[in-house]
Amino acid sequence: MSPGRPSLSDAQIAGFAAIAVLVHLVEAGIPSPVPGIKPGLANVITLIVWARWGLRSAVWVTGLRVLVGSLLVGSFMAPGFWLAAAGASLSLGTLALATGWNRALPRLPLTVVGASALSAVAHVSGQFLLAWRVFVPHPGLLHLLPLLLAMALALGLATGWLAQRLLQRLPATTADGYTSTHE
Protein backbone atom coordinates (compact mmCIF):
# COMPACT_ATOMS: atom_id res chain seq x y z
CA MET A 1 0.00 0.00 0.00
CA SER A 2 1.44 3.32 -0.99
CA PRO A 3 1.61 5.94 1.73
CA GLY A 4 -1.21 8.45 1.87
CA ARG A 5 -3.58 5.86 0.45
CA PRO A 6 -5.36 4.38 3.40
CA SER A 7 -7.00 1.04 2.89
CA LEU A 8 -10.67 0.62 3.68
CA SER A 9 -12.01 -0.62 6.99
CA ASP A 10 -13.83 -3.94 7.03
CA ALA A 11 -17.18 -2.20 7.29
CA GLN A 12 -16.40 -0.02 4.31
CA ILE A 13 -15.31 -3.00 2.26
CA ALA A 14 -18.60 -4.68 3.14
CA GLY A 15 -20.43 -1.52 2.17
CA PHE A 16 -18.80 -1.26 -1.23
CA ALA A 17 -19.32 -4.97 -1.80
CA ALA A 18 -23.02 -4.44 -1.01
CA ILE A 19 -23.24 -1.66 -3.60
CA ALA A 20 -21.48 -3.90 -6.12
CA VAL A 21 -23.88 -6.77 -5.40
CA LEU A 22 -26.78 -4.37 -5.78
CA VAL A 23 -25.55 -3.11 -9.14
CA HIS A 24 -24.93 -6.69 -10.18
CA LEU A 25 -28.49 -7.72 -9.29
CA VAL A 26 -30.07 -4.74 -11.03
CA GLU A 27 -28.05 -5.56 -14.10
CA ALA A 28 -29.11 -9.20 -13.93
CA GLY A 29 -32.73 -8.06 -13.89
CA ILE A 30 -32.43 -6.05 -17.09
CA PRO A 31 -32.76 -8.32 -20.12
CA SER A 32 -29.73 -8.10 -22.38
CA PRO A 33 -30.21 -7.72 -26.14
CA VAL A 34 -27.43 -10.22 -26.76
CA PRO A 35 -27.41 -13.27 -24.50
CA GLY A 36 -24.21 -13.55 -22.50
CA ILE A 37 -23.19 -9.94 -22.90
CA LYS A 38 -23.65 -7.64 -19.92
CA PRO A 39 -22.27 -4.14 -19.45
CA GLY A 40 -20.49 -5.17 -16.23
CA LEU A 41 -21.46 -2.09 -14.26
CA ALA A 42 -20.59 -3.80 -10.98
CA ASN A 43 -16.99 -3.49 -12.13
CA VAL A 44 -17.30 0.27 -11.77
CA ILE A 45 -17.25 -0.21 -8.00
CA THR A 46 -14.16 -2.41 -8.20
CA LEU A 47 -12.45 0.20 -10.35
CA ILE A 48 -13.31 3.06 -8.02
CA VAL A 49 -12.01 1.15 -5.02
CA TRP A 50 -8.88 0.17 -6.94
CA ALA A 51 -8.16 3.71 -8.06
CA ARG A 52 -8.83 5.31 -4.67
CA TRP A 53 -7.91 2.68 -2.10
CA GLY A 54 -5.61 0.30 -3.90
CA LEU A 55 -5.50 -3.27 -5.06
CA ARG A 56 -6.03 -5.06 -1.73
CA SER A 57 -9.37 -3.38 -1.07
CA ALA A 58 -10.46 -3.99 -4.67
CA VAL A 59 -9.70 -7.71 -4.32
CA TRP A 60 -11.81 -7.88 -1.16
CA VAL A 61 -14.74 -5.98 -2.63
CA THR A 62 -14.75 -8.08 -5.80
CA GLY A 63 -14.36 -11.35 -3.94
CA LEU A 64 -17.27 -10.53 -1.68
CA ARG A 65 -19.36 -9.41 -4.61
CA VAL A 66 -18.88 -12.68 -6.48
CA LEU A 67 -19.55 -14.74 -3.36
CA VAL A 68 -22.57 -12.84 -2.05
CA GLY A 69 -23.96 -12.23 -5.53
CA SER A 70 -23.93 -15.94 -6.33
CA LEU A 71 -25.46 -16.81 -2.95
CA LEU A 72 -28.29 -14.34 -3.57
CA VAL A 73 -28.95 -15.52 -7.13
CA GLY A 74 -28.56 -19.11 -6.02
CA SER A 75 -25.74 -19.99 -8.39
CA PHE A 76 -23.11 -20.66 -5.69
CA MET A 77 -20.84 -23.53 -6.79
CA ALA A 78 -22.84 -23.83 -10.07
CA PRO A 79 -21.18 -23.16 -13.46
CA GLY A 80 -22.28 -19.53 -13.32
CA PHE A 81 -20.35 -19.02 -10.09
CA TRP A 82 -17.16 -20.51 -11.48
CA LEU A 83 -17.51 -18.42 -14.61
CA ALA A 84 -17.88 -15.25 -12.53
CA ALA A 85 -14.96 -16.30 -10.34
CA ALA A 86 -12.73 -17.02 -13.33
CA GLY A 87 -13.60 -13.69 -14.92
CA ALA A 88 -13.09 -11.80 -11.66
CA SER A 89 -9.73 -13.48 -10.96
CA LEU A 90 -8.29 -12.63 -14.34
CA SER A 91 -9.64 -9.11 -14.20
CA LEU A 92 -8.13 -8.59 -10.71
CA GLY A 93 -4.90 -10.08 -12.08
CA THR A 94 -4.75 -7.36 -14.69
CA LEU A 95 -5.52 -4.72 -12.06
CA ALA A 96 -2.52 -6.08 -10.15
CA LEU A 97 -0.45 -5.70 -13.31
CA ALA A 98 -1.71 -2.13 -13.67
CA THR A 99 -0.79 -1.43 -10.02
CA GLY A 100 2.69 -2.79 -10.69
CA TRP A 101 3.00 -0.70 -13.82
CA ASN A 102 2.01 2.47 -11.99
CA ARG A 103 4.51 1.73 -9.24
CA ALA A 104 7.32 1.02 -11.73
CA LEU A 105 6.55 3.91 -14.08
CA PRO A 106 4.96 6.65 -11.99
CA ARG A 107 5.55 9.16 -14.78
CA LEU A 108 3.55 7.10 -17.30
CA PRO A 109 0.55 6.12 -15.21
CA LEU A 110 -2.45 4.09 -16.25
CA THR A 111 -5.72 5.69 -15.23
CA VAL A 112 -8.94 3.97 -14.37
CA VAL A 113 -10.04 4.07 -18.05
CA GLY A 114 -7.13 2.02 -19.34
CA ALA A 115 -7.32 -0.35 -16.39
CA SER A 116 -11.02 -0.82 -17.03
CA ALA A 117 -10.54 -1.69 -20.72
CA LEU A 118 -7.78 -4.14 -19.84
CA SER A 119 -9.70 -5.78 -17.03
CA ALA A 120 -12.87 -6.09 -19.11
CA VAL A 121 -11.00 -7.89 -21.88
CA ALA A 122 -9.32 -10.10 -19.26
CA HIS A 123 -12.66 -10.79 -17.59
CA VAL A 124 -14.23 -12.04 -20.81
CA SER A 125 -11.11 -14.02 -21.73
CA GLY A 126 -11.14 -15.74 -18.34
CA GLN A 127 -14.80 -16.64 -18.60
CA PHE A 128 -14.38 -17.79 -22.15
CA LEU A 129 -11.38 -19.98 -21.41
CA LEU A 130 -13.19 -21.72 -18.58
CA ALA A 131 -16.41 -22.10 -20.58
CA TRP A 132 -14.58 -23.42 -23.59
CA ARG A 133 -12.11 -25.73 -21.87
CA VAL A 134 -14.40 -27.14 -19.20
CA PHE A 135 -18.11 -26.60 -19.70
CA VAL A 136 -18.68 -26.65 -23.47
CA PRO A 137 -15.66 -28.09 -25.30
CA HIS A 138 -17.18 -27.05 -28.57
CA PRO A 139 -15.09 -25.90 -31.55
CA GLY A 140 -17.86 -23.60 -32.75
CA LEU A 141 -17.66 -21.52 -29.59
CA LEU A 142 -14.26 -20.22 -30.62
CA HIS A 143 -15.91 -18.22 -33.40
CA LEU A 144 -17.70 -16.14 -30.79
CA LEU A 145 -14.49 -15.03 -29.07
CA PRO A 146 -13.72 -12.06 -31.37
CA LEU A 147 -17.24 -10.71 -30.95
CA LEU A 148 -17.08 -11.09 -27.17
CA LEU A 149 -13.67 -9.41 -26.98
CA ALA A 150 -14.83 -6.48 -29.12
CA MET A 151 -17.89 -5.99 -26.93
CA ALA A 152 -15.74 -6.27 -23.80
CA LEU A 153 -13.34 -3.61 -25.02
CA ALA A 154 -16.13 -1.19 -25.89
CA LEU A 155 -18.00 -1.80 -22.62
CA GLY A 156 -14.75 -1.68 -20.64
CA LEU A 157 -13.99 1.77 -22.02
CA ALA A 158 -17.54 2.86 -21.18
CA THR A 159 -17.43 1.58 -17.58
CA GLY A 160 -13.94 3.08 -17.18
CA TRP A 161 -15.25 6.44 -18.26
CA LEU A 162 -18.15 6.11 -15.84
CA ALA A 163 -15.78 5.19 -13.00
CA GLN A 164 -13.66 8.22 -13.81
CA ARG A 165 -16.67 10.53 -13.70
CA LEU A 166 -17.75 9.04 -10.38
CA LEU A 167 -14.24 9.35 -8.94
CA GLN A 168 -14.24 13.05 -9.81
CA ARG A 169 -17.47 13.50 -7.89
CA LEU A 170 -16.48 11.26 -5.00
CA PRO A 171 -15.39 13.35 -2.01
CA ALA A 172 -11.75 13.12 -1.02
CA THR A 173 -10.87 10.73 1.78
CA THR A 174 -10.10 11.99 5.22
CA ALA A 175 -7.03 10.88 7.13
CA ASP A 176 -8.83 8.15 9.07
CA GLY A 177 -10.01 6.51 5.86
CA TYR A 178 -13.67 7.47 6.09
CA THR A 179 -15.17 9.38 3.26
CA SER A 180 -16.53 12.70 4.30
CA THR A 181 -19.98 13.30 2.96
CA HIS A 182 -21.34 16.72 2.31
CA GLU A 183 -24.99 16.34 2.95
Binding site: V21, L22, V26, G29
Partner: peptide, 16 residues
Amino acid sequence: RAAWGVALALLFVWLA
Protein backbone atom coordinates in the same frame (compact mmCIF):
# COMPACT_ATOMS: atom_id res chain seq x y z
CA ARG B 1 -30.04 2.66 1.87
CA ALA B 2 -28.25 -0.45 0.66
CA ALA B 3 -31.02 -2.63 2.10
CA TRP B 4 -33.63 -0.58 0.27
CA GLY B 5 -31.55 -0.88 -2.87
CA VAL B 6 -31.28 -4.64 -2.59
CA ALA B 7 -35.03 -4.89 -2.07
CA LEU B 8 -35.62 -2.77 -5.19
CA ALA B 9 -33.13 -4.88 -7.13
CA LEU B 10 -34.89 -8.08 -6.16
CA LEU B 11 -38.15 -6.51 -7.28
CA PHE B 12 -36.57 -5.81 -10.69
CA VAL B 13 -35.31 -9.38 -10.93
CA TRP B 14 -38.75 -10.70 -10.08
CA LEU B 15 -40.41 -8.40 -12.63
CA ALA B 16 -37.94 -9.46 -15.31
